[in-house]
Simulated assay, not measured.
Amino acid sequence: MTVTVRDLRLEVPADVERFAHSRHLALPYVLWVPQAIVHRQAHTHPDAHYRSLVAEEDGETIGTAQVGLAYDSPEPGQGYLNVYVRPDRTRRGAGALLVRAAEEHLIARGATKLFSWVLDEPGNRAFAERHGYRASRSAHFLRLDLANGRLPPLPDLPPGVELRTAADFADDPRPMFELDAETTSDEPSDIDAEFTDYEAWLQETWKHPLLDLDLTSVAVVDGRPAAFSAAHTDRGTRYATAMTGTARAFRGRGLAKLAKNASLHRARAAGYKEAFTGNDTDNEPMLAINRSFGYEICATEVRHVRELG
C-alpha cells in the first residue's frame, strides 16, 4: 500500500466529497461542505497561491492539507499549512508527505515563516515538533447544543440601537466590509491581517456559500453598522459563527453579545441543532460571552511556527 499526494480535483465532485469527509472526521467542529471547499479554491486571491492537497492510499482519501500565503498580511513571506489526517488512518506517512509537499510549495513562493494549526494532543504536537515547528498561541473550539440549550432571553434594545440582518445590506455591502476589516485587524493572531481589497472580500467572504445573510445579525447605531455576528450554516442542522466583532468606537456597550444572541435565537427558530464557534484562548471577553450562551469547549488547537533560515 502506497501513499501519494496530489492536488484536489475540483472538477470531480466525488473527490471534493471525499476531501470534505476526511476533514470532517479529523476536525468535526468545522463545517466541511463540498461547495465551500470548491469556493475557497476558486476564489482565494491569486497572491495567496492557495492549494488543497490530498493524501491518497489505494484510491482512498486519508489526509488533506490547505496551503497558502497570508497575502492580506502587512508582513510578507508568511505561509500556512493546515494538515489533517483521518484519525483512523494515521501512521501511514500521509502527514509527513503532506507537510513536505506543502512546504516545498510555500518556500518556492517566498515563504520565510510557516504557520500550522495542530490539535492539542500529544501525538500531534510531537509530530509538529519533529518537523521543526514550535508551539505558539492556542485557540478553543466550542459547541452549543442549540436545540436543547437555554439561550439568554432577547433583551430590550438600548436607545439608538437597532438590529438588522446582513440581508439588509445586500444592495451595498461596503459598510459590512469596513466593519469586518476593522474588527478582524484587532483579532488576536500570530498573523496580522489588513482587509484593503473590497472586491476580493466580496468574492471570498460576502459570496461565501455558507454565509447566511438572514441569520447574520448586525447592530446598527445611527445608521452605521457597529457590531455583527456572521453566521455560516450547512443548510441542514449545523450552524457556526464565522466572526463576531464590534467597531472600536462602540466597544464596551454589549453590542456584540446582542448581535450574537439574536443570531442564535433565529438559528434555533430555523431548526438548527448545533452551534460551533472558535476563540483564541486569550480572548477572554469573547469566551465569557460564549459561556453565557452555554457554549462548552470541545477541542483545542495550538498554532505552531517554523521560521526558515
Rank of each mutant, 00 (worst) to 15 (best):
H43G: 03
T90K: 15
A55Y: 00
R143K: 13
D15Y: 09
Q78S: 08
M286W: 08
E162G: 08
D58G: 10
P158H: 10
G68Y: 00
P175K: 02
L255E: 03
E17Q: 14
Y198Q: 09
H45N: 11
V302I: 15
N290G: 02
S136K: 12
A48I: 06
R51T: 00
R92P: 01
R251N: 04
R143A: 14
A94H: 01
P188H: 09
E56T: 09
D214L: 08
K207P: 01
A259P: 02
R109G: 01
I37A: 05
R268D: 07
W201S: 01
S185D: 09
P155M: 09
K113E: 14
A65Q: 01
L258Q: 03
G223P: 02
P76R: 14
D212M: 05
L258P: 00
T277M: 06
S138M: 08
L31W: 04
R91I: 08
T277Y: 01
R18T: 12
L146P: 00
A193H: 12
D7V: 04
V99Q: 01
E11Y: 06
T90D: 07
R253A: 12
N261P: 08
P46I: 10
Y272D: 04
Y71N: 06
A14G: 14
N124Q: 13
V3L: 04
P158M: 06
F115A: 02
T277N: 09
G95Q: 04
L69T: 05
W117E: 11
T2N: 13
A227Q: 03
N261S: 13
